[in-house]
């Protein structure tokens, strides 16, 4: 995984609450066995008109949004299906961070695993950021993960929470699987001490 540290990126706003992962990437795009085609499917039903041409009114399609790397949205972003295809699609499209009032639990976990930064800000900072975007559609923010801050266009630094372990992994580009593997001994000890609750290879409770 690429390390995530500090970057400056153009923001685009998609202001709605409860944007579910079916909107982020519809099920029709989940029939892949890799991650191909997901960026094209990002927000498919909103991004394209029924005839397949880009919807000029959709924020991501506006010329000034080209190259945006930070998505600003509302509350409970990424609710619904657990599909990791949603953060994969956002990342594939070019997003490095999503700024929201809150995130759905599974979406946040999935995003942290792949280096798409879920940033929760308070309502006042959210409003301030949106008004900056309204004034200047090419607004940029500075994201500083080591210091857990988003620096708004006016220069105000807004702190955001992130769990220390995920932060460590993101900054160093370390993946979490390696960390679990370091506990092999403890896992083996747990298994030795705990009888199998089920054995999928043998019905009838055979262990």
């Amino acid at each position: 995984m690429e390390p995530v540290t500090t970057f400056t990126g153009k923001v685009v706003a998609l202001v709605a609450d409860d944007i579910d992962t079916d909107q982020i990437i519809p099920a029709a795009y989940l029939k892949v066995t890799d991650k191909s085609g997901l960026a094209e499917g990002l927000f498919q039903a909103w991004r394209y008109l029924p005839d397949g041409t880009p919807n000029p009114d959709f924020p991501l399609n506006r010329p000034e949004a080209a190259g945006a790397t930070v998505l600003v949205t509302g509350r409970n972003f990424g609710c619904g299906s657990s599909r990791e295809h949603a953060p994969w699609a956002l990342q594939g499209y070019g997003f490095k961070a999503v700024i929201a009032l809150s995130f759905a639990d599974i979406f946040r976990n999935n995003s942290l695993k792949i280096g798409l930064l879920p940033i929760v800000v308070d309502e006042e900072s959210h409003r301030e950021l949106l008004s900056h975007i309204e004034e200047d559609p090419e607004t940029t923010v500075r994201v500083d993960l080591p210091n857990q801050q988003v620096v708004l266009p006016g220069g105000r630094a807004v702190s955001f929470p992130i769990d220390g372990f995920a932060k460590h992994c993101l900054i160093h580009g370390v993946d979490q699987l390696g960390f679990i593997q370091q506990h092999e001994e403890a896992i083996a000890a747990y298994e030795a001490a705990t009888p199998a609750r089920v054995n999928t290879l043998h019905p009838d409770g055979g262990a």
Partner: peptide
């Protein structure tokens, strides 16, 4: 019982464990 993403599916396949904060 709870849903997980594909990265975590990989974690469980490889280690039978997940990294979790107590909800």
């Amino acid at each position: 019982a709870f849903g997980i993403g594909t990265s975590e599916v990989g974690h469980v396949l490889a280690t039978q464990c997940l990294l979790q904060y107590r909800p």
